[in-house]
Every structure is written in C-alpha cells, then in structure tokens.
C-alpha cells in the first residue's frame, strides 16, 4: 500500500485500480479546485446571512422559525450518510465486488433523501408561519443559503443514482470509479458546509 504514491489528497484508490488511480490524479485535483470555487459561493452567502441578521423588517426571526429538533435530526442524518459513504469508498477500494458497495451507496442515498425530505418539511412549516423569502431581507438571506445547500445535496443524490445506473450498464469501470471518488469528496464537502449552517444559522439563531 505504501508503495503506491499518493496522487491526490483524500482517499487514493491505489494500485489495485491502476487505471482509475492514474485518471484520478487530474480529475480529483480539478474537483478540489471546483470545490474551492463553490466554497467561495457558500462563504459569500454566509457573509450575506450575517449582515442581514437584523433585517427582519418586522417579520419573524430565528427564534420563531427555527426548530432545533428537526435541524439536529438533519445533522445526524447527514453525518451518518457521510460515514456510510466512507464505508462505500472502502468497499470500492478493498472489496472488488459490487454488492457491498451498492448496499452502502443505497443507504447513503436514502439518508440523503431523508435529509432533503426533512428540510423540505422545515421550509413548509416556516412558510406556514410567515417565514417566506419575500417577507424580509433576513429570510431572503436564509433562503439563499440553506436551500442552496439542499440543492447541492439533491444534485449529489442525482449523481449517485446516475453512477449506480452506470454501474449496471458498464460495470465497475474507470468512469464509475473516478465518479465515485469525486462524489465522495462532494458528499463530505456538503457535510462540512452543513456543519457550518447548523452552527451559524441554527445554533447561532438560538443564541
């Protein structure tokens, strides 16, 4: 294992997957760069959210709108899904069959979809209490930041489905493997962004 030089930060596929391992060098580096760019977008939306904390315009604020229980549950779901994706990555690297890999991916997908479901439920509930983006600058900032993360998760889920279908069509080939490595990065990245959202938006809103 130590004999294979690391091609990129993060989990390397290693010699057993030589072709995919080599292909990952450029693809994963490019994906890191893309995530840096994406992180700027989230960073700016965080900054915008902070500047708009007081822009309630008489509308409902964090205290009235946020439900900690639900946000905490969402956090657990997403963190668990990161763990299960990690298991899927290990299956990809060390167990060269498709069974366990598909199973863990399936669990991750379900957790991701559950997260989106809970989040949509939250938004619906907020809307019922007058928490809609057109109500105030604060709510606009909230609805730019949090649903954008949700949209990322949804896209990642779609990507996962596409990769699973590709696995059926092409088998576990280089294209699928490199895709899974990159999706893993995205999945963990979105987890980190969510930790930021949970701390700053939800916990910060409580304070």
């Amino acid at each position: 294992m130590t004999a294979t030089p690391s091609r990129h930060p993060g989990l390397n596929l290693g010699r057993a997957h030589q072709e995919a391992h080599d292909a990952c060098e450029v693809l994963v580096f490019g994906f890191w760069v893309f995530m840096m760019s994406d992180l700027i977008i989230f960073g700016l939306l965080f900054a915008n959210y902070v500047t708009q904390l007081d822009a309630l315009a008489g509308g409902p604020g964090p205290g009235e709108l946020f439900e900690m229980k639900s946000a905490f549950l969402e956090t657990l779901l997403l963190l668990t899904s990161s763990f299960t994706y990690g298991l899927a990555s290990y299956c990809l690297k060390y167990r060269h069959g498709r069974g366990w890999l598909t199973a863990w991916l399936g669990v991750t997908l379900l957790l991701g979809l559950a997260f989106i479901g809970f989040e949509l439920h939250d938004f619906h509930k907020m809307a019922g209490e007058g928490g809609v983006p057109s109500r105030s600058g604060f709510l606009s900032a909230f609805f730019a930041l949090v649903p954008l993360h949700g949209l990322h998760v949804a896209s990642a889920c779609l990507w996962m489905v596409v990769l699973m279908v590709q696995m059926c069509v092409h088998g576990l080939d280089t294209g699928v493997k490199t895709g899974l490595v990159r999706l893993g990065l995205l999945w963990h990245f979105l987890d980190i962004v969510w930790v930021g959202i949970f701390s700053l938006v939800y916990l910060g809103g409580l304070a």
């Binding site: 915008n48 500047t51 708009q52 007081d54 822009a55 309630l56 315009a57 509308g59 983006p133 057109s134 109500r135 105030s136 600058g137 604060f138 709510l139 606009s140 900032a141 609805f143 730019a144």
Partner: peptide
Amino acid sequence: ALDRYLDFHFFTQDLGGD
C-alpha cells in the same frame, strides 16, 4: 435575479434589503 423573479429582498429598498 431572485429579487426580480421571486420577490426576494437582497437589494431592494424595502423589507430589509441592502
């Protein structure tokens, strides 16, 4: 675009836009 299409208030003059 969100301001213009979906009535958000990021940069509007009313309701806390800046």
